[in-house]
Amino acid sequence: MTQIMERKGVFFDVDDTLYDHLSPFRQAVAAVIGEREGFPYDEAYHRMRYYSDKLSLEMGGAGVMENDSSTELMRRKRFELALAEFGVKLTEKQAADMQAAYIGCQFNITMFDGAKELIKRLVKAGIVVGLLTNGAENHQLRKIRAMELDHLIPPERQFISGKVGWDKPDTRVFRHVNEATGTRPENCVYIGDSWRNDVIGALDAGWSVIWFNHRSANPETDTHTPTHTAASYEELAGLLF
């Protein structure tokens, strides 16, 4: 039992950590309002993610965020609120069209350079490798399948908040992962791009955190300090091996 409890674990976020989540956002915005020179797509994307998390929690969390009318309302509203901060006022139809365009290209996924290779190295090294992502179960599974990760990360190590019942940064979801994988918090590393969900959530759960800050974002609080920060998979590999 002691040997099992000392297993090392490395767990990855999915959206904008394993693949570029900005690309479908940019395509969706351009499809509705046109490509605008100088438009701060990175900043607008971060605000869309913020409103997505905020509205999802207000509506009951990812556990109830499958395909129903409330989900569609949230998905439209996040575009309206985010773009309004940058002087773009969307109609309901434009927001719906933007969401449809976003979904239409969201599963055409290209993983970041070195991502799959790093996962293979970790698996080969005997480390427990898993995924922990916020979102509705079926929606997130489609992304995982699109990346063809099942042969590297078995379904029992793919933790989706909509199925588990808790959303990051709730520490209960991290404890659930530890219990399900036979790992301890002090032996686990979480890799993710979101300050609120990933850095704060994992640190509060007693895990080490590598903040995957590939967009050069600023820390959102001064109460937490990532164990490490990396901006590429080359840097991640250097920290993990």
Rank of each mutant, 00 (worst) to 15 (best):
V64I: 11
G165Q: 09
A125L: 00
E179T: 12
R121T: 07
K168P: 00
E117N: 10
L149E: 08
G130A: 06
Y102F: 13
C105Y: 04
V128Q: 13
L132N: 03
T71N: 13
M59P: 02
Y50I: 02
T91M: 07
T171V: 14
G87Q: 02
E58L: 12
G63R: 14
K168L: 02
R142Y: 00
I119H: 12
F79C: 07
S52C: 01
N134F: 03
T110N: 14
G135P: 07
T91I: 02
G60M: 12
S52V: 01
R76L: 01
D53Y: 04
K54W: 14
K116S: 08
D97E: 15
V88F: 03
P169A: 03
R78D: 04
Y102Q: 05
H139V: 10
R76E: 13
A180Y: 01
F159E: 10
Y50F: 15
L152G: 12
L55G: 06
I144D: 01
F107L: 10
V128R: 03
A136V: 07
K116I: 11
G130M: 02
K163Y: 11
E137L: 13
H176W: 12
G104P: 09
I109H: 09
E179C: 07
K93G: 00
K116H: 12
M98P: 09
E179G: 02
C105I: 08
R76N: 08
R76Y: 01
K116F: 05
A95I: 06
L83G: 02
G130N: 00
I127D: 11
G87V: 10
S56Q: 12
S70Y: 10
I103T: 15
A95C: 04
L73N: 13
A62T: 10
L83A: 10
N138E: 15
W166I: 11
K120Y: 00
A84P: 05
L118T: 15
S70D: 15
G61T: 06
L141W: 15
N178R: 11
F159H: 05
M48Q: 14
K163I: 07
E72V: 08
P154S: 06
E72C: 06
I160Y: 12
M98K: 06
D170S: 15
M59G: 13
F159Y: 13
S69E: 14
R47G: 00
L152A: 10
G60C: 02
E148R: 13
G130W: 00
R157C: 01
T171M: 03
E156H: 13
G182R: 08
L122M: 09
I103K: 13
F159L: 09
D150K: 14
Q140K: 06
E58I: 01
F159I: 13
V88P: 03
K89G: 04
E137C: 05
H151V: 04
R76T: 00
V177Q: 07
H151G: 03
R172S: 11
Q158S: 13
I119S: 05
A62M: 08
L55D: 08
L132Q: 04
K163E: 15
R121E: 15
M111T: 11
R47D: 14
K163R: 15
V164L: 13
Q158D: 12
E72T: 09
K116Y: 11
I119P: 04
Q106L: 12
F112M: 12
M74W: 03
E179K: 12
M65F: 06
M111G: 09
